[in-house]
Amino acid sequence: MSDYNFAYLDEQTKRMIRRAILKGLAIPGYQVPFASREMPMPYGWGTGGVQVSAAVLTPDDTFKVIDQGADDTTNAVSIRRFFQKTAGVAITEATSKASVIQTRHRIPEENLRADQILVYQVPIPEPLRFLEPSEVETRKMHALEEYGLMHVKLYEDISQHGDIATAYAYPVKVEGRYVMDPSPIPKFDNPKLEMAGIQLFGAGREQRIYAIPPYTQVVSLDFDDYPFQPTKADHACDLCAAEDSYLDELIVDDEGGRMFMCSDTDYCANRRKQGHVGAQGVPYAEDQA
């Protein structure tokens, strides 16, 4: 523990953030403005997610942090350490054991339960931002449900490329009302946005919090004749042979050799523990030896 308050933020600030979270849960997909604090890590590095985590963590929680699906990427390590130091909560790399998971760019492969909270770090919360730069105008568009422009963008993609050319941060419509940016997760993850757990999204620099309550309808925008398709590399994981998980592509030599492995490191390790071995993998026990 340290001289700071539990989970760094003072109780007043946490209360203010919790109010924003509750409002977000009450209006799924709506971006709630909140008075984001200056955190001891840079804006754009997860300050929104960190503030949301700080507001929901209790001393009994078990916390997991992933970045790109992995627990040991530098930013994940840094955020996990921050809460170890300021909140002293238990930490884990196992998705199933965590009660709060903070993530950047991925949704864990394993289905989350009703007693779990997933906290997303969000760089640009406004799905209409790159179509309309003015905040005043985009807030009005949300209020009046004027989303035609969003489909114009998808139309332009198809007319130019023959397909919807959005691979991540793929826009969704929540509960038939608000168009929402699911944060830069690959579109492969979009179907998982309908889940049992609570999903909270924090954008620190842009001062917005939004949420998806459990079992809320989340529809990826598309056309009837160009339906949304969650895609991944057409391979199996070279370590654990999983065919249903999102894969990272690694360049392994200077002759174009490459391998594919699960981006969700916990998922991959679990499968290997269970005895699955991929094309370039070794049995789990040997690797640990």
């Binding site: 840079p42 804006y43 930013n75």
Partner: peptide, 20 residues
């Protein structure tokens, strides 16, 4: 903060762009 965050890993998003 936002400018420098682009040096953080983005390989998951880049992978989905690669496939696309």
């Amino acid at each position: 903060g936002f400018l420098e965050h682009i040096k953080l890993p983005h390989y998951v998003d880049f992978q989905s762009e690669l496939e696309l």
